[in-house]
Design a protein around this nucleic acid. Structure first.
Lengths: 162, 162
DNA sequence: TGCCGATGATTGCAGGAACAATCATAGTGC
DNA sequence: GCACTATGATTGTTCCTGCAATCATCGGCA
C-alpha cells in the first residue's frame, strides 16, 4: 500500500498545476480573443511557425510540436488560411507532405497579438514565480516532455546549424 | 506598456508547462480510460465529491472547483448518474440548487481508479520533481489560482485508504 | 523493379465543450 | 409585500476535437 501512495507534496503540486493551468489558459484565451482577434490555439500556430526556419513547418511536425491531432490541425490551418495568416506550400522533398507557412499578414497579426499575450503571461504567471521557481518549473516540465515526447523535446528552441 | 519583454526564463517555463501539461493530461486520460473505465474528467468529479462534506457539492460549486462550465457539468453529471456513480439531491436550503452526491458505487469506482491514476502521476510527473521543485510548483500555481480564482476553495487531498 | 508496411494529410463521423437563452428561485432595496 | 436584479440548473445551438478510415507517397528489402 505504501508504494501506491502519492506523496502529498507532489500530489498537491500536480493538482495546483491542473487548476492553475485551466484558469490561466482560459484567461489568456479570452484576452487574445478580446484584444487580438484570435484564439490562443491560433496564436500557438503562429508562434511555432514564426520560430521555424523559413517560417514554415510540415503539418505533422507542427501537430507534434503543439501536442495536437493532425486532423484538428488540418482544420485549424484551414481557418488560418481563410484569414490569410497562413498558407500551404508543397514540400518538394516529400510529396505527401505540406508545409504550413506563415504569411506576412500572419507575422503582422502575431506581432500585434504578442504584447497582449506577453502581458497576460507576465501578470498572471511570471509575476508569481521568482527566478529559482521559474528554473524549477522549466526543469520539471522539461523532464516531463522528454519523458512523454522524447523525439520532439528540443525541436523548437534548438536548431543546430551545420 | 513600459516593459513588454517577457523574460526568457519565465517564458520558457510557461511554454514547458503548456506542452508538459498537454502530454501529461493526454497520457493520464488514456490510462484511466484503458484501465479504469472512466475519463480523467469523470475522475475529477469523483475526487471533488469524495473530499466534500457528506460527499456532495452543489453543481455550481463543483463547476467552479473543476474550472468547468455549468452546462458541461450538467451533462457530465447526467452521464455519471446513468452509470450510478453519482446521484442528484435537492438542496433544501436553496431550492434552485442541486447537490451532486457520490454514491457507494462511485466511491468504489474511485478507489479502483485511484491506483491507476496515482501510478501515472508518480511515474510521469512526481518522478521528475524533487521536494524543493514540488514546493516551488505548488507555490507558483497556488499563487496563480489565488490570483485568478480568489474565492475558490482551497485544494484538498484525496487519501481513500485513510 | 515490385512488394509492403509506415507515414503524411485529409475527411466522415460522433462525442465533447462553451455560450446564450430560459425558467425557477433567492436576495435586496424600498 | 413588491419590483428588480442576481444566481442556479438546464437546454438548444454551434463549434471544436479526436478517432478511424482513406488515399497517396515513401522507404526498406528481396
Amino acid at each position: 500500500m505504501a508504494e501506491e501512495t502519492l506523496d502529498t507534496a507532489s500530489e498537491h503540486a500536480w493538482r495546483a498545476v491542473l487548476k492553475g493551468h485551466a484558469l490561466l489558459v482560459a484567461r489568456l484565451d479570452a484576452d487574445l480573443r478580446a484584444h487580438a482577434g484570435m484564439a490562443l490555439i491560433d496564436y500557438d500556430v503562429l508562434v511555432q511557425l514564426s520560430e521555424a526556419p523559413r517560417r514554415r513547418l510540415p503539418m505533422a511536425d507542427l501537430a507534434r510540436a503543439m501536442v495536437y491531432s493532425r486532423s484538428g490541425l488540418t482544420r485549424l490551418v484551414d481557418s488560418l488560411e481563410r484569414r490569410s495568416l497562413v498558407t500551404r506550400e508543397h514540400n518538394s522533398t516529400d510529396r505527401r507532405s505540406w508545409y504550413a507557412v506563415l504569411t506576412g499578414q500572419g507575422l503582422a497579426a502575431l506581432e500585434a497579438a504578442w504584447p497582449v499575450h506577453a502581458a497576460g503571461v507576465r501578470a498572471h504567471f511570471a509575476a508569481h514565480a521568482d527566478p529559482g521557481q521559474a528554473r524549477a518549473i522549466s526543469a520539471v516540465f522539461g523532464a516531463v516532455i522528454a519523458d512523454l515526447a522524447p523525439d520532439a523535446a528540443e525541436l523548437r528552441h534548438f536548431h543546430p546549424t551545420g
